[in-house]
Write a protein that binds this DNA or RNA. Sequence first.
DNA 1: GGCCTGTGATACCCGGGAGGTATCACAGGC
DNA 2: GCCTGTGATACCTCCCGGGTATCACAGGCC
Lengths: 287, 287
Amino acid sequence: MDALETRELRYFVAVAEELHFGRAAARLGMAQPPLSRAIQQLERRLGVRLLERDRRGVTLTGAGEMLLHEGRAALDAATAAVRRTRRAGGADGTGSSRNRLVLAVKAGSSHELLHKLLDAYAAEPGAAEVEVLPSGTCEQGEMLRDGRADVALMHKPFNSLVGFDSEELMTEGQVAILPAGHPLAARGSLTVAEVTDLPDLPLARWARDGAYPPGPGPEIRDQTQLAQLIALGRTVAVFPESARAWLWAEHTAVPLTDAPPVVTHIAWPAHSRSLALAALIRTATRL
Amino acid sequence: MDALETRELRYFVAVAEELHFGRAAARLGMAQPPLSRAIQQLERRLGVRLLERDRRGVTLTGAGEMLLHEGRAALDAATAAVRRTRRAGGADGTGSSRNRLVLAVKAGSSHELLHKLLDAYAAEPGAAEVEVLPSGTCEQGEMLRDGRADVALMHKPFNSLVGFDSEELMTEGQVAILPAGHPLAARGSLTVAEVTDLPDLPLARWARDGAYPPGPGPEIRDQTQLAQLIALGRTVAVFPESARAWLWAEHTAVPLTDAPPVVTHIAWPAHSRSLALAALIRTATRL
DNA sequence: GGCCTGTGATACCCGGGAGGTATCACAGGC
DNA sequence: GCCTGTGATACCTCCCGGGTATCACAGGCC
């Protein structure tokens, strides 16, 4: 009736993402015929057509789109269950500690707040061990969803807080980071418009979901790359004020008057019921 | 490695809830030995002890508690995927309509707001068909989680909005509903303390999660029962103001000055991405 | 037209594992 | 002592998940 094993979900999601049975089968490490059969069985059991097989490839039906979305969420929930259970049992390879929290933090974001938080929490009686997990750009939500992390520091408006509970920790303005010798570096403040359309300094572009937004600027993958390009006078970037902490001598940070403020939140899966997590959140909100 | 089929989750949740292999097996419609074996395999694969088998029954370890929580969430997500996919494909038994929303509403709550909402939405161009699903007391969250509903009207502080996105629709005070002849019925307003400790009129008790809170008052299961008992002068109840709509001639509603206000929200699973749902929410917030 | 290519579907086979039955091992209660 | 009720073990059966070989068909070539 309403079974639906995660195996079937994995299969369907693979096919729906590849829109190609052969490639999906390869990705799953299996042969194509059993995959075709599994999807057919799934459609029969749901009583719904999920894929439109045109002889030239495959397309999703409306129901297929729905199952792709909901199925991903269900798969994330299942892998999260595994990860968190292993962690709760101390079987994550390290072998011992029973009480541990994994905190996802965007690599390279403000160390000051993080330090204060970790120190304050460590001073609490009975504090759990906190593992800091560096995450890629805007990857924290995914990590919370699939259980790689228990709690995260997220930055509005860059991260979406949809589906999580959160508390505000800090608000800061944004600054333009320019080469020290650039004419605008002498200014006391700038506007967003002034730094986006510089003919000599195209704005750096960060990858979002693996793809780069279009534009003339260089494609950036990590902060060191970016820092170097700015120092070389090849690009300019916009960051929250706390980025001043990692600036080089060749950089100058100039406040932007009209950039949206960046709000740092501590966020966690809404259904969490962990005492250690609650204590960490309490500590964080008191900072 | 990180598989974990929903079958295994169902098995574990059954055992964890029953704390008894035999009963869990009966509930699952299978024999006890394969269930024992499945749980052992699960523990081996996770590398974690989930249950402490004392010869007199079974208890959960910390990891077991975690898996119970997270596993329930994952199972809900999986059944929600099935339900929503069937609905999107029009295979929910009715057979045809492709675009449908299920709105969970606490049985007997304000019809006025609901009517306005449904009428306004039906007038929208391209509105989906809205099925109104009456839900038990405080059951709406569960229905959103397991996919029986797509959207719900929920009432703070009775319903927990944890894990959902929501918009406020309406705030109202609460009233005490008394037998018309009661001395307090003549008063213009009352306090909570005045109606909770009436020696002649014990406060009615509603079931929460199938269990009744302790107290002297009668145990109530539905609103008609309650209305009758109030009319007979046997009990008193506290309701949002909109309950006036279903009062009988033998009832009197008196405002409570210090009861917390009740806020009606429209709530939906945070990850929803349905156009029909978005339109309904937009309509609701414009009311 | 004949042929090759690439798609998903079908036919058939095999082995692992999910599930059943029978039984054991052990702790309490009378 | 025995009986009861617990979960674990042993062993068997058979289903079904997965593999290989092949088909059916649509297009693109020359």
